[in-house]
Amino acid sequence: MSAPLTLAQLEDLESRHVLRNYARLPVAVESGADVWLHTVDGRRILDLLCGLGVTSLGHAHPAVTMAIQEQAGKLLHTSNLVHLQGPTRLSERLSTSSLGGGVLFQNSGAEANEAAIKLARRNKRGGEIVSLFKGFHGRTYGALSATPQEAKQEPFAPLVAGFRAVPPTVEAVQDAVGDGTAAVLLETIQGESGVLPIDHDVLRAAREACDAHGALLIVDEVQSGMGRTGTMWSYEASGVVPDAITVAKALANGLPIGALVTAPHLYDVLQPGDHGSTFAGNPLSCAAALAVFDVIEDDRFLARVVEAGDRFRSGLEAHPDVQHVRGSGLMLAAELTPEAVARHGSAGELALRLVTDHDVWVNGPTPSALRLLPPLTITDEQIDDGVARIAAGLAAR
């Protein structure tokens, strides 16, 4: 086996052969184990971002690794034209853990949201999709059209017609939903905009408005689902039950998979040929996802997520540069004081120095907030280590 390329060699190759779509950190990762990333130059980085909420059981989790190895020796792909064990079993787990209806597999969160949009319009025979300001639902055209962020939308106009964005208030949602509305698509916690929880009154208003006008309420659980907030699905905390949810990121702990999950009354809306994907429901990804379910679908595990989140919150809020910590479970954002932001330039600049100088990985989704999406398996010792590293970074300048 050849030696890994150095960071400089990787950067050189990428500059000549990779489209400039990603602004990469000056870090070259070779392997990972538990909460740690190992770089080609021998560093060990505490991963408190989980690949943006994906590797929720940490890196190289033994149960997931074993499931992948076993499935790789059996079958990687055939097609969705035959019956398969893994996707069928995973459909049952997704359905029974949430809305009790049907499941349609995809390969990502954006694709799952595309499927949800098609479901809503097929159900209503057209209609408008209402979303919330600062929401994020993906970068494919339908999902992007439901993502009211000018910096993301403007370069790709014209977008798909029939989308409306409103403020996350009871009055705005009630006014926006009418007989011509196909669905309200929202996140319970807006992760990409800085971990912004949506008030439960807004969720209840959306549910009532959708019921009154025959529209669907679709909750995007791509980042907040699979135990991230301390319940299996984030919508559970509000008591509001949606008509459909979309799932991805943490579902297979790193392998590409997404899913649309519906309530029973929508089981027959999509017909053969309405939607499809060559790789959706891939047996390898489904095997990994079943292993993930085996670990997290446990009340004790989810209770531990809440405890871990409380420990992170109290540790971070004890620092004078942190105004408050928002979010639920292990989906958190530390809002920095104006003085700390001025001293460090921005949360993004601070996050860069944290990973390069203090070997801890978080990110800055807004100029004043650090986002943490650590492994759900993180220990108290690792939490305290992470808080100490962030504190050292805050004190360094």
Rank of each mutant, 00 (worst) to 15 (best):
D310F: 01
T96Q: 14
P197T: 03
A318C: 07
L270R: 02
H59I: 01
G180Q: 13
G142S: 11
N80D: 14
V241H: 03
A291E: 01
Y22E: 13
I189M: 07
A280I: 04
A72M: 13
D243E: 10
V40D: 07
A146L: 10
L352A: 12
L217E: 06
R20F: 00
L5C: 08
L332E: 01
V29E: 09
D12T: 14
W36R: 12
V64E: 07
F163Q: 10
H265L: 05
P242R: 05
A244H: 09
F301Y: 15
G127C: 10
A388I: 07
L330T: 15
A248D: 12
E92L: 10
G345M: 06
A396W: 12
T88P: 00
P197V: 02
L81P: 00
A280S: 15
L370G: 09
L7N: 06
A63F: 03
G327V: 10
V160A: 14
A206N: 03
G276W: 05
A116Y: 11
L7C: 04
G58R: 12
H83V: 13
N123D: 11
L260E: 13
L144R: 15
E335Q: 14
L186K: 07
N282I: 02
R300S: 15
D211T: 10
A237C: 02
G258C: 10
P26W: 02
G281K: 10
P87M: 10
R93E: 15
G214K: 08
R24I: 03
A165P: 00
N21D: 08
P87R: 15
F105H: 07
A244Y: 08
H319F: 05
A116Q: 10
R89A: 15
L132T: 02
N80P: 01
F301H: 13
P155D: 03
R44Q: 15
A237I: 11
E307K: 15
N113R: 08
T366W: 05
V219Q: 01
P283A: 02
G386S: 12
E70L: 13
E171M: 06
I45E: 08
E221C: 08
P168W: 04
Q149C: 00
G101R: 11
L57K: 07
A172R: 04
T231K: 08
N253W: 06
D175C: 03
D310G: 12
Q106K: 11
V247C: 13
E335Y: 03
L260A: 13
A157F: 06
A237L: 14
W361F: 15
P197F: 07
Q382D: 12
D220V: 02
S56F: 05
L48V: 00
G227Y: 09
V27D: 04
R24S: 13
M1H: 14
L186A: 13
R311D: 11
K118E: 13
A157I: 03
G100H: 04
G101D: 07
P197D: 02
Q71F: 01
L99T: 05
E221S: 06
V54Y: 00
A146D: 12
D380P: 06
G227K: 04
D243C: 04
S131P: 00
L196K: 04
I218D: 05
G127N: 12
A3M: 11
V247T: 12
T55H: 07
D357R: 12
A157R: 15
